[in-house]
Design a protein around this nucleic acid. Structure first.
Length: 269
DNA sequence: CTGATCTTC
DNA sequence: GAAGATCAG
C-alpha cells in the first residue's frame, strides 16, 4: 500500500519534470533568436561572499568558491538561488571535469572512484537547471565533497529541497555551503581528498528590509530527525571553520543575525 | 531529487 | 573514454 503511494508520487514527479521540459522548449521557440541556454553574465554578487581563508577565491559564471588546496575541495561555495532559477528542466548528467580555474590544481574525479563516497555537489545541480551551461558548470571537481551516499541522498537532499522551497517562497535566497575542513579527517584517492566530518549550509534572505539568516550543521551521517534540530548560529560555524561569512554586512546587523539560532522566521512546512 | 555502475561501442 | 541503460536511497 505504502509502496503504491510512493510510486504514484514518483510518477507525478516525473510527469512534472517532463512537462517542465516541454514548457522550456516552447519558451525557447517563442523567443527564437534568443539563446535561452546561454548565460554570459559573470557571477559577481560579491556583497554577500565570505572571506577566503585559503586566499584562492574563484568566480564561475553561476557560483563562487574558495578552494582549499590541502583538502582538495572548496571550503565554501556561494551562490544566489533566485525564484526564476527554479525551472526543473531535466538535463543529462555530464562528466565531472577538473576545474582549470584552480591555480593549484583541483582534485581529479578519479579520487572519488570506488572510494565508497559520493561526489557530493556543494552548489547542487538541481539549483542550476535554468540553462544547460549553468547545470554543467556544477560538475566541476571544485564543487564537490566526498559524501556518504545515505547522507547525500538523505537529510542533505532534504535540506537542498527545502532551500528550493524557500527560494520560491521568499523570492530568492543566498546560499553558502561546504564541509568543515578541520581536525582529523579520512582521505580518499591519490590526491588525498579530505572527507569532512561535518557539513554546513547558511542561508540569507536580504530581499526585504527584515534580513533573515539561518544556518545548519550536520554530522556527516544520515538522520531521520527533522531539519530544525540542526539549526545553529552562524557564529558557531565561524568558530568551527575560521571563516568570516558576511563581512560586508553592517557590523551591528551582522552581529545580531549571526549570533541567533532562532529559526522562527523560516517556515518549515 | 541525490547518486553509482554496468554494457556497449 | 563516451554514452545510454539500469539500479539504489
Amino acid at each position: 500500500m505504502m509502496k503504491r503511494f510512493l510510486y504514484s508520487i514518483m510518477a507525478i514527479t516525473i510527469g512534472l519534470v517532463v512537462y517542465g521540459y516541454e514548457y522550456f522548449l516552447d519558451e525557447k521557440e517563442r523567443t527564437s533568436g534568443v539563446e535561452v541556454g546561454k548565460q554570459t553574465k559573470k557571477y559577481t554578487n560579491t556583497f554577500l561572499l565570505p572571506i577566503s581563508t585559503t586566499n584562492q577565491m574563484i568566480h564561475h559564471e553561476n557560483y563562487s568558491l574558495s578552494y582549499s588546496e590541502p583538502h582538495e575541495q572548496a571550503e565554501w561555495v556561494a551562490y544566489e538561488l533566485k525564484k526564476e532559477h527554479l525551472t526543473k528542466t531535466r538535463f543529462n548528467r555530464p562528466y565531472f571535469e577538473v576545474d582549470e580555474a584552480v591555480k593549484t590544481g583541483a582534485a581529479h574525479w578519479r579520487n572519488y572512484k570506488k572510494s565508497g563516497y559520493d561526489r557530493g555537489h556543494l552548489c547542487p545541480a538541481g539549483d542550476r537547471t535554468f540553462s544547460k551551461a549553468a547545470y554543467n558548470e556544477t560538475f566541476l571537481t571544485s564543487n564537490i565533497s566526498p559524501q556518504r551516499h545515505d547522507f547525500n541522498s538523505g537529510i542533505w537532499n532534504t535540506l537542498e529541497q527545502k532551500v528550493r522551497y524557500w527560494a520560491h517562497k521568499y523570492d530568492g535566497v543566498f546560499v553558502v555551503t561546504g564541509g568543515v575542513l578541520k581536525g582529523e579527517m579520512k582521505t580518499i584517492g591519490t590526491e588525498k581528498v579530505a572527507v569532512p566530518n561535518q557539513f554546513y549550509k547558511i542561508l540569507i534572505d536580504n530581499n526585504t528590509d527584515k534580513i533573515k539568516m539561518i544556518a545548519f550543521l550536520f554530522p556527516h551521517e544520515n538522520s531521520k530527525k527533522p531539519l530544525h534540530e540542526f539549526v545553529v548560529s552562524v557564529d558557531s560555524i565561524e568558530k568551527l571553520t575560521g571563516i568570516d561569512f558576511f563581512p560586508q554586512l553592517e557590523d551591528t546587523l551582522e552581529n545580531r543575525l549571526e549570533a541567533s539560532s532562532n529559526y522562527k522566521a523560516w517556515r518549515f512546512n
